[in-house]
Nucleic acid binder design. Structure first.
Lengths: 241, 241
DNA sequence: GCAAAAGTGTTCACATTACACCCATGG
DNA sequence: CCATGGGTGTAATGTGAACACTTTTGC
């Protein structure tokens, strides 16, 4: 293979070399939620003939005058009515034949939402929350996208306290531990978990207790955003297991 | 904001809704090399009028029948003559006005190569290896892309032994430590560094010594690919500092 | 009073850090 | 013989993992 500086280069060639082929760019959102001690993902039934009855992620084509990140926020907002939620880009999937409608390169994002905060579930029969562990087959390459985003989430929750986006504002330590266990698919020691979480100093004891539980009620906490913002400036905050 | 399931959705709408607007997709490669105790990156002078005399990454438009990953391998191969090198996708940049030629969404990859293994430097005046720390301004949004890839590399070298891609096949522990220090921008204790590297069991003592050094010569090692492959199957291999 | 989960400390093994002296080579 | 970096070990500290009993509530 002979190197050759005359090879085409998007960064050094003039405008007229823009392609004559029709590419499409889309975003797909892996929207995670947490309910009944189970990590779930919001899916829609595909009505493309090639994928009849398969579930797919929520996505849409990028608009001509829209930033890529903005497109993913738009999809999320249009589908869940939620705004100001955690959303992060993960990976771009560009296999030639991944979409039957033509050449569509898609950028995958994942989002962490509180299931109770969106009003959608009853309004839309085509949208469903699926337990992540029950999903084995999906339309397009969406299973691969989901797996990639889940792995990313597992890494992320051990590096930064993004996990609180999935919980109610007030939560018990048991809630929090269950959620870590659901995401990481591990069992954690209760005493060590509590110790570790308290040493991060990210929980505020609001001096309230669980209500209507058939056992000794636990204390409720909130996530201390302000303290986290302060800590983040100085150094990174890891929550490793 | 009212949720609405009739919003356009690339995964559920028929073929005829493909866009009528001309998007372009490109890949940009951040090619890292290591030379003279310095982490470097391979850049080319942009000849777009908007970016006269600014340096840019190596990139090209995605071809219609080409996977996204394949495009980045092609760019790398065409530019350096190198094949079978480490290359990984990092992030996709899709700001509306990031490219003056039109709407170009670009996916950034980074690559780790051995500078001495490519024959290019003398052949092509427009390509240069730049010390990463000396780069303050670049064409397009390439400084941001470079920064993103550098951060990714810093994380990656502490999680997996990819760093050996930057070194000669035979190297001294000092070489290896210098490289970690250059990438992470830290100073490491020599004794602790050696201990840690030996406990990973990834170095093979080839019973050779440095030549022509003006001090006591150090032992040379190679990276034990076979052992790493075996370890990787069982568990992840971290090299944290 | 029984079931179910909350709350709480200590010990041990291991990993990380800090730190100083002699050795081999080239000039 | 001098300058330069190679090579080596130990003690202190911090971190992660394992582990059991008492308390509070609803029923």
């Amino acid at each position: 293979m002979t190197p050759n500086r005359k090879k085409p280069n998007i960064n050094t060639t003039p405008v007229e070399l823009m392609p004559d082929f029709q590419f499409a760019i889309s975003v797909d959102c892996v929207i995670f939620g947490y309910e009944e001690n189970t990590l779930k993902v919001l899916l829609i039934k595909s009505d493309l003939p090639a994928f009849a009855n398969k579930w797919s992620l929520l996505g849409d084509l990028l608009h001509p005058d829209e930033d890529l990140d903005a497109a993913s926020y738009r999809v999320l907002r249009d589908r869940t009515g939620l705004d100001n939620v955690f959303l992060e880009q993960v990976h771009t999937f560009g296999q030639v034949n991944r979409h039957p409608a033509g050449r569509v390169v898609t950028t995958a994002y994942y989002s962490l939402v509180n299931i109770r905060h969106h009003q959608l579930s009853q309004l839309d029969n085509e949208l469903h929350w699926h337990p992540v562990n029950d999903i084995h087959e999906m339309a397009f390459d969406h299973k691969k996208i989901l797996d990639t985003c889940l792995k990313h989430l597992q890494k992320k929750v051990q590096e930064e306290p993004v996990i609180f986006n999935l919980l109610e504002q007030k939560f018990s330590l048991r809630d929090l531990q269950n959620l870590y266990e659901a995401i990481l698919d591990v069992k954690l020691d209760r005493r060590n978990f509590r110790k570790k979480l308290f040493t991060t100093d990210l929980l505020t004891d609001i001096h309230e207790m669980e209500q209507d539980v058939p056992h000794r009620p636990g204390k409720l906490y909130t996530f201390n955003h302000a303290r986290y913002a302060k800590m983040k400036k100085k150094t990174f905050v890891g929550i490793d297991f």
